Computed example of a mutant assay.
Amino acid sequence: MAQPALSTAIDFALPPVLHNERGEVRTVGVEIEFVGPSAEKTVQALQEALGGRLLEEDPHAFALKESAIGDLTVELDSRILHPGKQAGTQRGVLPKIAALFGFAASYLVPCELVTAPTPIDRLEELNRILTILRRLGAKGTQDAPFYAFGLHFNPEIPRQNAATVTAFMKSFALLNSWLRREASPDTTRNLLGFADPFPSEYVRRIVQPDYQPDIATFIDDYLAFNPTRNRDLDLLPLLHHFDATRVRAVLPNEKINGRPTFHYRLPDARVSDPGWSIAPDWNRWVCVERLADDREKLDAVGAAYLAFDGEDKSWANVVEQVVRS
């Protein structure tokens, strides 16, 4: 008797808080890096498969509007190749030079595909993008021994207040050793694609059960220890949204676009692997949300971390039991 086919599809988990303060389903934007097909060829293939209106912003940056899965952009991931997007740039020689340089650099500089905010309960639709990229011959992390291509999530914060951002930051800091191990178990890649972890002094400060600051204090503490975008959970866009003046006082020239979202940066986009999905990485993020939503468990894990006298790898084993329970 023939055995039934085994499904290899991975379901997308839903977070404990599905709706925002307006009662709408929360959204998440997704960013995927790859090399191989040009930005133009990629967006044309996306339009053919998903419909929509194609707009050229410059020779290496394109937008697809009103596709079957929403708006998308595809561009070479380098600011110097898009002078028209920089304030004060004039049309003329500089954009032409950037365009020519972009064609040469396209063999070395990855493309970045960015989705518009997508309702979290429709996140599985974005896996269609991966099928299109594979058909085009797009390459990812496993094809480049000395380069890690990024996968980023930008989930909307469920409640725009200090208590919520503090709980999420605590939860992420406590689970970070496990998250990093699961996202990139190959230790040779840890030096290539990962952002720097949060300083241990900062983690020990914020996971104290009685650490419940107002938003101004939270921002000041975060910037004192993390005046950089180089964190796997980059809070600068969210903190800029809360208080742009306070953030700019410390980082006047940093490229930050304020928005009510977290920015979760992962170093592994395996776009050429037919078995790869964004679901496992998303589901681990949902583990962060679940712990953040359970304040009693969050405080207990924080207290356990402060009493723990071991290495990060050992702590990862401890918190793995927390997320599996």
Rank of each mutant, 00 (worst) to 15 (best):
G70M: 01
Q208R: 14
T115P: 11
T228I: 12
R248K: 14
A49T: 13
A13R: 02
D210V: 12
A279G: 11
A316P: 09
S171I: 03
N190G: 14
R189S: 11
Q86W: 11
Y264T: 02
V271C: 00
V93H: 09
W285L: 05
I132S: 07
E289Q: 04
N161I: 06
V35G: 08
W178S: 07
D232Y: 05
H152D: 09
P110I: 02
L136T: 09
R248F: 12
W276Y: 12
W178V: 03
L151H: 02
A49M: 10
G23C: 06
R53F: 13
V288S: 00
N176Y: 03
I10Y: 01
L298E: 05
V25C: 05
K313Q: 13
Q44M: 07
A216D: 10
L233G: 01
D294F: 00
A167Y: 06
K313I: 08
L133E: 02
E112R: 06
L14Q: 00
K85C: 07
T8Y: 13
N127K: 03
P227M: 13
I69H: 05
V74K: 01
E254D: 04
D273P: 01
F172T: 03
N176V: 04
L223G: 03
T73Y: 06
P267F: 08
P185T: 12
L223F: 10
D232E: 15
T166G: 07
H240Y: 09
P16Y: 00
K41M: 08
I10F: 03
L223A: 04
V247Y: 02
D121R: 00
